[in-house]
Simulated scan of single mutants.
Amino acid sequence: MVQVTFINNPVTLVGNEVKVGDQAPDFTVLAPDLSEKTLHDFDGKIRLISVVPSLDTGVCDAQTRRFNEAASELGNDVVILTISCDLPFAQKRWCGTNGIENIHTLSDHRATSFGDAYGVHMKELRLLARSIFIVDQVGKIAYVEYVSEGTNHPDYEGALAAVKELTK
């Protein structure tokens, strides 16, 4: 079982840990226009799923900006999804204010469907634990990082290298 802290306090993660080689669990989240999105909406693409507690915090902001910048270099076979429990309206405002145009921001606020499916729903906070998942073109988990302390940065270069390996 994954152990995670948030501001150095242990949190309880709801859901099941996913591992490399697993079939990626489906989920239902909301796009900024309130339409429902699922993992299958992006079938056939390599999906880098960047999970953040809230876009309006320093590390989450940096993480989202880093992957937005990388998106244009990864080609049309790759899609980057940033998922948080922020309201869809707040995500849309944040992206507009910050010029974020190369990724999809998705809200897990309504039902924590993603958080529960990937084992990143922090029960005490009703936020998602910082993590990265890469799902290959056929729906298998190809990379997983559960960041052990929620205020730390993920391994950006490791995740991007894993994506690039899948595009070869």
Rank of each mutant, 00 (worst) to 15 (best):
P154H: 03
A117Y: 04
L13Y: 02
D116S: 14
I103R: 03
Y156C: 10
G119Y: 05
E73I: 01
L34K: 15
M122A: 03
E69M: 11
F67G: 03
D43G: 10
D86M: 06
Q91S: 13
R47D: 03
D136E: 05
F89Q: 06
V4F: 07
Y118A: 08
V14G: 00
H121T: 15
P88M: 14
E17I: 06
A90F: 00
N102C: 10
R110L: 14
Q3K: 11
S72P: 00
S72N: 13
F27P: 11
G99V: 05
E165A: 14
H104Y: 15
C95Q: 11
P32S: 14
V2F: 00
R47H: 01
A24W: 13
L160C: 11
D22K: 07
D33P: 12
A159F: 05
V52Q: 09
I134F: 02
F42Q: 01
A71D: 11
L55Y: 00
A31C: 11
A161G: 03
T57D: 09
I141P: 07
A71Q: 13
Q63G: 00
G58N: 12
L127S: 08
H109W: 14
F67C: 10
G21S: 12
F42W: 12
G75Y: 09
D86Y: 05
D155I: 03
D77K: 12
K123M: 07
S72T: 14
F42Y: 15
V78K: 01
D77N: 14
D56T: 02
T97G: 03
Q3L: 10
D61R: 04
M1T: 08
N76T: 09
I132E: 13
T167H: 00
Q23I: 14
D136M: 08
K45T: 07
D136G: 03
I83P: 02
D33W: 13
D155C: 01
T57F: 00
G119T: 09
E17L: 10
D33K: 15
D22Q: 14
N102E: 13
A129G: 05
K123P: 00
L13R: 01
N102P: 04
F89Y: 13
D86L: 06
V144Y: 06
H121D: 11
I83F: 08
